[in-house]
Amino acid sequence: MSKESVVELGEGKSGSSSRRGVNRGLSMLDFVLRLIGIVGTMASAIAMGTTNETLPFSTRFIRFRAEYDDLPTFTLFVVVNAVVSGYLVLSLALSILHIVRSSAQKSRILLIIFDTAMLGLLTAGASASAAIVYLAHQGNTTANWFAICQQFNSFCERISGSLIGSFVGVAAFILIILLSAVALARPT
């Protein structure tokens, strides 16, 4: 007998239990990343949804106001982050199932499909809002769009900050999908 066949024969139950332990560890990391995604997307939705600023003007009848719902892109951003956050809360149940039963394959495939769809949705919403935030900060002289962040400082700080949480959610989804793929690729 060669050394390789002895190693294969000796692996037995201990190799199978170590593989289950690795899959359980991947499932726990998946759960933690989902919690991070929930915090990021929910904080982004709340921060953007509560953003407004009013500038005083020389007369009491004229006031300049900036709110998130002045731009449809920011409204989309709030809705997308709320939907993704709700999905992540619901997906925690399957994530817990994967911790308990590390050999569950079909539910992992289902999660990968939905996680990929949510990643695309969240990336689209965050990227569109990032473009508007860039215009708010820099403006566009060719189109005669003026940068508003010199006047609406608080508004711009909050909308910029809400993008950070959303992109944290994007990064969490990328890692979740990769972890799920690794868990599926490992033999049970």
Rank of each mutant, 00 (worst) to 15 (best):
residue 89 V to H: 10
residue 141 T to E: 12
residue 116 T to E: 01
residue 107 S to R: 07
residue 123 T to M: 13
residue 63 R to S: 11
residue 127 S to W: 00
residue 151 Q to I: 08
residue 147 A to R: 10
residue 139 G to F: 08
residue 59 T to G: 05
residue 109 I to H: 02
residue 50 T to F: 11
residue 94 L to N: 09
residue 69 D to E: 13
residue 79 V to C: 10
residue 47 A to N: 07
residue 75 T to D: 12
residue 71 L to G: 04
residue 86 G to E: 10
residue 79 V to H: 05
residue 73 T to M: 06
residue 153 N to T: 03
residue 73 T to A: 14
residue 149 C to P: 09
residue 138 Q to V: 12
residue 79 V to Q: 11
residue 122 L to Y: 05
residue 73 T to Y: 00
residue 114 F to I: 10
residue 89 V to Q: 10
residue 145 W to C: 12
residue 121 L to G: 07
residue 117 A to H: 04
residue 120 G to W: 02
residue 147 A to G: 13
residue 78 V to K: 08
residue 56 P to I: 04
residue 73 T to E: 13
residue 91 S to Y: 00
residue 119 L to S: 04
residue 134 Y to W: 09
residue 103 S to L: 00
residue 105 Q to M: 09
residue 91 S to W: 01
residue 144 N to E: 13
residue 81 N to Q: 07
residue 112 I to Y: 00
residue 106 K to C: 03
residue 114 F to Y: 09
residue 77 F to A: 06
residue 148 I to L: 14
residue 80 V to T: 12
residue 129 S to E: 07
residue 124 A to D: 05
residue 73 T to H: 01
residue 56 P to D: 09
residue 155 F to H: 06
residue 110 L to G: 15
residue 152 F to G: 02
residue 135 L to W: 01
residue 63 R to G: 01
residue 63 R to D: 01
residue 74 F to R: 00
residue 94 L to W: 00
residue 55 L to H: 02
residue 121 L to D: 03
residue 154 S to A: 14
residue 85 S to A: 15
residue 48 M to Q: 14
residue 68 Y to P: 08
residue 126 A to G: 08
residue 53 E to G: 06
residue 69 D to R: 09
residue 101 R to I: 07
residue 64 F to C: 02
residue 126 A to M: 10
residue 79 V to S: 10
residue 96 I to P: 00
residue 82 A to D: 02
residue 53 E to I: 04
residue 73 T to C: 01
residue 81 N to M: 10
residue 117 A to G: 12
residue 146 F to M: 11
residue 57 F to M: 15
residue 77 F to G: 03
residue 99 I to Q: 05
residue 47 A to Q: 08
residue 86 G to C: 13
residue 130 A to N: 11
residue 115 D to Q: 10
residue 154 S to T: 14
residue 76 L to K: 08
residue 58 S to V: 12
residue 111 L to K: 11
residue 109 I to Q: 14
residue 132 I to T: 13
